[in-house]
């Protein structure tokens, strides 16, 4: 997922294809933090296993080893900065996300169906201000669901956004998204 690269990278020039995927851990999480993450991952995997097998008890013979092995990958993966969700921010984000994805889909569907498509496509850049890791990944993925915007590329500390209509107010839309992601991850 998006990581640091040399700040000298020019926004006009494409970044190295994989440079933005290199993980550069800022500080290693402590051992208890890793065990907490192990338990969290195990809980999520157990829920997925339960859903896939329809809560069958006899499937646990495979499920328990599979869940433990999957969660143990936490110790094999490079450490990444931890994050936590705010319950209130999560609820607000989910509702807003649902409304925005409907708006985005209706907008693009109307454009696709209109006899004269109202398109003024182009690229704009926006500075990445959120902390790296989960908040930034969430930001980049949600841009694509907002009406008229698509996260096209990461160049240094900027995201290059493709817009269906470049006359829309990108700064206001993405600023609002940033504020919601800050609330979601209980930042500041």
């Amino acid at each position: 997922m998006p990581r640091t690269q040399s700040p000298a990278t020019n926004a006009a020039k494409p970044a190295e294809p994989r440079a933005n995927l290199v993980t550069v851990p800022a500080d290693r999480p402590s051992a208890p933090a890793r065990w907490r993450r192990f338990l969290a991952v195990a809980a999520v995997l157990a829920l997925i296993w339960a859903a896939l097998t329809g809560f069958r008890a006899d499937a646990l013979a495979f499920g328990v080893p599979a869940v433990l092995a999957g969660a143990a990958l936490v110790f094999a993966m490079p450490p990444s900065p931890g994050w936590r969700l705010s319950p209130r921010g999560l609820l607000a984000f989910v509702l807003w996300f649902a409304v925005q994805s409907v708006k985005g889909a209706v907008d693009v569907a109307l454009r696709a169906a209109a006899p004269r498509m109202r398109l003024r496509p182009g690229f704009r850049t926006y500075p990445l201000a959120l902390p790296q890791g989960a908040p930034q990944v969430m930001f980049l993925n949600t841009i694509t669901l907002l009406p008229g915007t698509l996260s096209a590329e990461i160049a240094g500390d900027q995201v290059i956004v493709h817009m269906l209509d470049t006359s829309a107010d990108l700064k206001a839309d993405l600023g609002a998204l940033e504020a919601r992601i800050k609330a979601l991850f209980a930042l500041n």
């Binding site: 693009v108 569907a109 696709a112 008229g148 493709h162």
Partner: peptide, 22 residues
């Protein structure tokens, strides 16, 4: 609607809008 966008939109970036959102 997404398929309509895929067929009608002028370039790959606009088409991605149609596929990801609709």
């Amino acid at each position: 609607a997404g398929t309509l966008g895929l067929l009608r939109f002028p370039d790959i970036f606009c088409r991605l809008h149609a596929l990801t959102k609709a």
